[in-house]
Design a protein around this nucleic acid. Sequence first.
DNA 1: TCATTAAAGTTAT
DNA 2: ATAACTTTAATGA
Length: 198
Amino acid sequence: MAIEEFIIKSSVGRVREYDAGDVVFSEGNLPNYYYQIIEGEVKLTNYDDDGKEAIQNIVTAGHSVGEFLLFIDKKYPANAIAISHCKILRISKLKFFKLLEDYPELKMDLIRNLSDSMFLKFVMRQILSIKDPATKLKVLMDHLKGTQDETTAFSFQIPLTRQQMASLTGMRVETTIRALKMMEKENIVKIRNRKIFY
DNA sequence: TCATTAAAGTTAT
DNA sequence: ATAACTTTAATGA
């Protein structure tokens, strides 16, 4: 049984609803809760002086958000903002630790989630260090598509806007658009009425 | 080459 | 209707 089922069953936490754009937590705040997405998507972002957004990660249903901060005494290094309408489970830090004590098997769940996000950190860091825009996008898309690579060309629709791809890779949206058009010419992606297939 | 700015068209809420 | 996203073009580092 997964962590969220335990929490819901024992009703120690509650599910809150968020609309797209709603803030789940803000940079600089002290972490007091464990959050897990039941439905919808959340982005972890930072904003520079000009208000330009850098997306660290997009978290989907079934995953926890910012959980690693419950184990260290630090403030949130990023904002968590709902991208779509979301249902998010929230449980206080204290109750969360109590739950882990009572049900040690949940710790494996937690470790898996942590490992997942750590792996993602490596992928994202690699993408940021790549210079060529098309290569950046290709590595991002490879990651999104999963490891089943070549098997089925153009079978995967990229679940991101060009804007989001730009914010994830550290590029401008115009550069992203140009790179994608190049990639279409080179038969790396297919674009059908603005949808990107890889 | 890519970021930036501007302007205009398109889609989503 | 309004905001968000997409696209093209021009300019500059």
